[in-house]
Computed example of a mutant assay.
Amino acid sequence: MDDELERWKADGAHFDYLGFTVFYRKAGTGPNLLLVHGYPFSSWDWAAIWPGLTERFTVIAPDMLGMGFSDKPVDYEYSVHDHADMHEALLEHLGIRSCHLIAHDIGVSVAQELLARHDGNEQSTAPFRIDSITWLNGGLFNEVYRPRLVQTLLSKTPLGDVVARYWRVLMPGVLMNAAVRELFGPDTKPSNESLEKFRQVLEYNNGKRVTHKVGRFVRDRYHHRNRWVRAMRRTRVPMRLIDGPYDPNSGQHMADRYIDIIPDPDVVLLAPTIGHWPQIEDPNGVLTHFLRHIDNIGKPEPMNQ
Rank of each mutant, 00 (worst) to 15 (best):
V201E: 11
W228T: 10
K197F: 05
R168S: 13
Y222M: 13
V218L: 12
Y166A: 11
G215M: 11
T211Q: 10
W228A: 05
A178W: 06
A179G: 04
Y222P: 03
K197A: 07
L170V: 00
S191M: 12
F184S: 05
V163D: 01
M171E: 02
V201A: 06
D220G: 06
E193C: 07
L195E: 02
R219G: 12
M171D: 02
Y222R: 14
R216N: 13
V162C: 00
N177K: 02
E196M: 12
G207S: 14
D220C: 08
G185S: 09
T188G: 09
D187M: 05
L159M: 06
V229G: 05
R209H: 11
N192Q: 15
G215E: 13
R221W: 10
K213Y: 04
F198P: 08
V169R: 01
R209F: 02
N205F: 04
F184N: 09
D161W: 03
H224F: 14
V218H: 07
F198H: 09
N226C: 07
D187C: 11
E196A: 14
V210K: 02
P172T: 07
Q200P: 13
D220P: 03
W167V: 03
T211H: 03
R216P: 07
A178K: 10
V201L: 15
S194H: 08
L175C: 04
V210E: 01
E193D: 15
M176D: 00
T188F: 03
L202H: 08
W228C: 09
V210W: 04
F184K: 02
V169L: 05
K197G: 06
R225I: 03
H224W: 08
H212S: 14
D220V: 06
R199G: 08
H224C: 10
D161P: 05
V163S: 01
N177H: 04
V218S: 13
E193A: 14
E196H: 13
P186V: 05
V163C: 00
W167L: 01
G160N: 07
G207I: 01
P158K: 06
Q200V: 10
G160H: 07
R199D: 14
P158Q: 03
L159G: 02
R199Y: 06
N226I: 06
W228Y: 11
L195G: 03
V169G: 00
N177I: 01
V163W: 00
Y204W: 13
M176P: 00
G160R: 02
R168D: 14
V229A: 08
G185V: 03
E203R: 12
T188E: 12
L170D: 00
K197R: 15
V201W: 10
Y204H: 14
R181C: 08
F184R: 04
G173P: 03
N206E: 15
T188R: 12
R225E: 12
P158S: 09
D161Q: 09
G160W: 01
S191W: 09
D187T: 14
R216E: 15
N192M: 13
H212M: 09
P186A: 04
H212W: 14
H212P: 06
P172K: 00
K213V: 01
R165W: 03
L183N: 04
F217Y: 15
F217K: 10
N192G: 15
A179I: 00
N206W: 07
N205D: 15
V214L: 07
K197Q: 14
Y222C: 08
R199L: 12
